[in-house]
């Protein structure tokens, strides 16, 4: 069993953020240690390739430092928004490249996630299923079941009501279940 990554209580996070705004290296290191695994998990399910997910996570950390002074409101919500923008830019860049270079069209095969543990679902299947959801639904599913947040936290992060998040969650899971069942057949 692997150790858990760094977790920070809200007060501690605010203190670290305050120092990070002064570009204190120690605080930025701590913040990166805290954010990297979360952001990576979020991006991993939104792009096909593992190394793309790593590169984009690095880019998110960089953007975080560059615009930390402009950050307001919920930090977690903000960092996931930055991550979401980075992913959107990535696909936009790729779309442009695909027009110019048809060879770039080949979307890489989903990484080998052969399920050795006998789980009902593996990462590749989930990734595939998530790609059929709307952006909002996918975001809620990743934050809730991959990142492990509660509905109320997600609502705060996405600036939505609890009811809206619950509705997105229910619809997303219903669709996901149908897609996964169809794939199994």
């Amino acid at each position: 069993m692997r150790e858990k990554f760094l977790e920070l209580a809200e007060e501690e996070l605010q203190a670290v953020l305050e120092q990070a705004r002064h570009f204190e290296p120690k605080a930025i290191a701590k913040l990166s240690e805290y954010c990297y695994p979360k952001v990576f998990g979020y991006i991993y399910y939104r792009v096909n390739d593992h190394s793309d997910a790593e590169d984009l996570t690095g880019e998110v950390c960089l953007r975080m430092v560059q615009s930390i002074r402009q950050q307001k409101g919920s930090f977690k919500g903000w960092i996931y928004r930055v991550a979401s923008n980075v992913v959107t830019d990535f696909y936009r860049r790729r779309a442009v490249r695909q027009v110019v270079d048809p060879a770039a069209d080949s979307v890489e095969d989903i990484v080998d996630d052969t399920d050795e543990t006998g789980h009902l679902l593996n990462q590749a299947q989930l990734k595939e299923g998530l790609s059929h959801l709307t952006d909002e639904q996918r975001e809620v599913i990743i934050l809730k079941f991959i990142e492990g947040y509660e509905t109320e936290e997600i609502a705060r992060m996405l600036e939505k009501s609890n009811e809206a998040v619950r509705a997105l969650q229910f619809r997303a899971l219903t669709t996901l279940k149908k897609i996964l069942q169809k794939e199994k057949r």
């Binding site: 695994p37 998990g41 991993y44 593992h50 789980h119 990462q123 989930l126 599913i141 079941f145 492990g148």
Partner: peptide, 8 residues
């Protein structure tokens, strides 16, 4: 099943 998936 989703919550039992290994973390990437």
């Amino acid at each position: 099943a989703m919550e039992q998936l290994p973390k990437p």
